[in-house]
Write a protein that binds this DNA or RNA. Sequence first.
DNA 1: GTCTATATTGGGATAGAC
DNA 2: GTCTATCCCAATATAGAC
Lengths: 203, 203
Amino acid sequence: MKTKAPHDLETAGTRERIVRTASRLMQRQGYEGTGIKQISREAGATLGSVYHFFPGGKQELGTAAVRLGDEEFTELLRESLDAEPDPAKALVALTASLAEGLRESDWLDGCPVTSTVVGTAGSAPGIQRAAAEAFARWRAVVAAKLVAARFAEADAEDLAHTVIATLEGAELASQVARSETPLEAAGRHLARLIASYGGSGHS
Amino acid sequence: MKTKAPHDLETAGTRERIVRTASRLMQRQGYEGTGIKQISREAGATLGSVYHFFPGGKQELGTAAVRLGDEEFTELLRESLDAEPDPAKALVALTASLAEGLRESDWLDGCPVTSTVVGTAGSAPGIQRAAAEAFARWRAVVAAKLVAARFAEADAEDLAHTVIATLEGAELASQVARSETPLEAAGRHLARLIASYGGSGHS
DNA sequence: GTCTATATTGGGATAGAC
DNA sequence: GTCTATCCCAATATAGAC
């Protein structure tokens, strides 16, 4: 059994602290904009420790940061979808909580996976792969929810592509505009799109 | 009257060459991942020329690159929407051409504005502002098309938010997945969403 | 406007003591 | 596993001749 990660940085192990700090910094500054020295400093670890846990250097660290972002958003997605039987209503609530998170960070913390992966196309294949896996997992979670709400499987997988893409795009648009409007509109329109398939949709 | 920009890099003026090279490189590598020396080298200009035209340094250059990406996508958007009276059908065609462009670049060239602005939140306000203006202009172009197709103005502006957000997100998802599927699904679903408002929608 | 040279800082990465 | 010191290189930016 794997060690459970403590939720505060203080009591977490060194490796945990490094990954979480890397993820948080890359979420704000991007992969190229974040230095290993900055990560080690803010994580309270020495440079030697960083290279001890991540001998593959910055790319390996970036990949681990993307995987952590993947897990975190998967968790948020599952919570939102489990809290409400109707997938359309659940997505409206999800966009609201994404907007709230953005505003609370003064529009600095967008999607950690997107921020980290943008700009690494062709130069950091490990990060690309981890980001592709993240998007695929999120799509699968959404599709499963739709299937559970009696959508046809083909429709569910098809819709899941657009749900994830629209969430990504709307979070980016909200961040750039420093406004909740894009996410709010995305939530309403995704709900409407979903309703146009299965009626009310909840089982 | 402003000087018309020649379309090939060879005969363009130095300033033009620098901006276009910057835009293209930042589209692939992001703002932080692109160096001024690389830009000057690939543009066939000296470092002195770069700082002559852009005394504000990298930030001013990045802002100009975002504005160029804004103009280019505005043009593509207008062309796509003008070629087809039904906005829903026009968006399907647009997603297809975006997917084609991505595939032709081996999935390297995503949205130049998005790639450049991500990671600059809080550290490069000029770039942030230029990106916000770009998104707003694109929304206005889409909204105008919808109004011309007899949509209510409130619905048109509301839908335009989601159209732009979904296009952005789907282009990103297609790039990461190295697949046309996300853009293709986005086109179909945006068409369906639009059709759910105004019927066939064309005047 | 263009060019070369350079100042300065910080980047990723490594070595080896403890 | 942790720490310090260091290597090497690229980054942004500037100065000043032409």
